[in-house]
Amino acid sequence: MTKTAKVTEFRSVADMTIGESAVISSVGDDCLDIHCHCLRLMELGFTPGQEVSVVAKSPFKDPLAVSVRGTIIALRKTEAECIKISTDGIRN
């Protein structure tokens, strides 16, 4: 699988650049891991249809600061990968 194909098919919050906004399409749909914390992500406010944007990244590129529902939440990349965004991400 080429890199570009991956990006267009399964973009997640982890792939977003700083300042980019997008709409969440699904959370944890393809997570196979039983220890996954996707439910917690949803409880935190990352629900499908919600708009998110990446505000900043830690100097070590991980975790990311993601804005959702009026607040900013820091997430590790592995967690951000569970939050898929719709490909037709809307630009600001």
Binding site: S53, P59, S67, G70, I72, N92
Partner: peptide
């Protein structure tokens, strides 16, 4: 506005984060 105003975090904080979380 695309960004829904009611769900935008504190704007000053977002600006400050650009500095406090800057790579250098």
């Amino acid at each position: 506005a695309f960004r829904s105003l009611s769900r935008t975090p504190d704007l000053n904080s977002m600006k400050l984060d650009k500095v406090f979380l800057h790579p250098i």
